[in-house]
Simulated assay, not measured.
Amino acid sequence: MPHRTIPFALVGIDHVVFLVDDMPRALAFYRDVLGCAPGYSYPVMGMEQVWAGAALIVLWDTTHPGAAAAVPPVVGGRNVDHLCIATSPFAPQDMRDHLARHGVQIVREATHGGARGMGHSFYVLDPFGNKLELKGPAEYPDGRA
Rank of each mutant, 00 (worst) to 15 (best):
His3Tyr: 13
His3Asp: 13
Thr5Val: 15
Thr5Ala: 10
Ile6Glu: 15
Leu10Val: 11
Val11Ala: 15
Val11Ile: 14
Ile13Ser: 04
His15Leu: 05
Val17Gly: 12
Leu19Gln: 14
Asp21Asn: 13
Met23Ile: 02
Pro24Trp: 07
Ala26Ser: 12
Leu27Ile: 08
Phe29Gln: 06
Asp32Asn: 02
Leu34Asp: 01
Leu34His: 09
Gly35Glu: 11
Gly39Trp: 03
Gly39Gln: 04
Tyr40Gly: 15
Tyr40Arg: 15
Ser41Phe: 07
Tyr42Ser: 03
Gly46Lys: 05
Met47Asn: 10
Met47Thr: 02
Glu48Tyr: 07
Gln49Thr: 14
Trp51Arg: 04
Gly53His: 03
Gly53Leu: 01
Ala54Glu: 13
Ala55Tyr: 11
Ala55Met: 03
Leu56Asn: 12
Thr62Ala: 01
Thr62Pro: 00
Thr63Trp: 10
His64Phe: 05
Pro65Arg: 07
Gly66Met: 01
Gly66His: 02
Ala67Trp: 05
Ala69Trp: 12
Val71Arg: 13
Val71Gln: 12
Gly76Ala: 00
Arg78Thr: 15
Val80Cys: 15
Asp81Trp: 13
His82Cys: 02
Leu83Gly: 04
Cys84Thr: 11
Ile85Lys: 06
Ile85Ser: 10
Ala86Glu: 03
Thr87Cys: 09
Pro89Arg: 06
Pro89Glu: 14
Phe90Arg: 00
Pro92Arg: 03
Pro92Val: 06
Asp94Thr: 12
Met95Tyr: 09
Arg96Leu: 14
Arg101Ser: 12
His102Gln: 11
Gly103Pro: 14
Ile106Lys: 05
Val107Phe: 04
Val107Trp: 08
Arg108Met: 11
Glu109Lys: 02
Ala115Met: 09
Gly117Glu: 00
Gly119His: 03
His120Pro: 09
His120Arg: 07
Ser121Leu: 02
Phe122Thr: 01
Phe122Cys: 11
Tyr123Met: 04
Val124Phe: 11
Val124Leu: 10
Leu125Thr: 13
Asp126Thr: 09
Asp126Met: 09
Pro127Ala: 03
Asn130Lys: 04
Lys131Met: 15
Leu132Tyr: 05
Leu132His: 02
Glu133Cys: 02
Glu139Ser: 09
Glu139Lys: 07
Pro141Ile: 02
Pro141Lys: 00
Asp142Phe: 09
Gly143Cys: 10
Arg144Val: 06
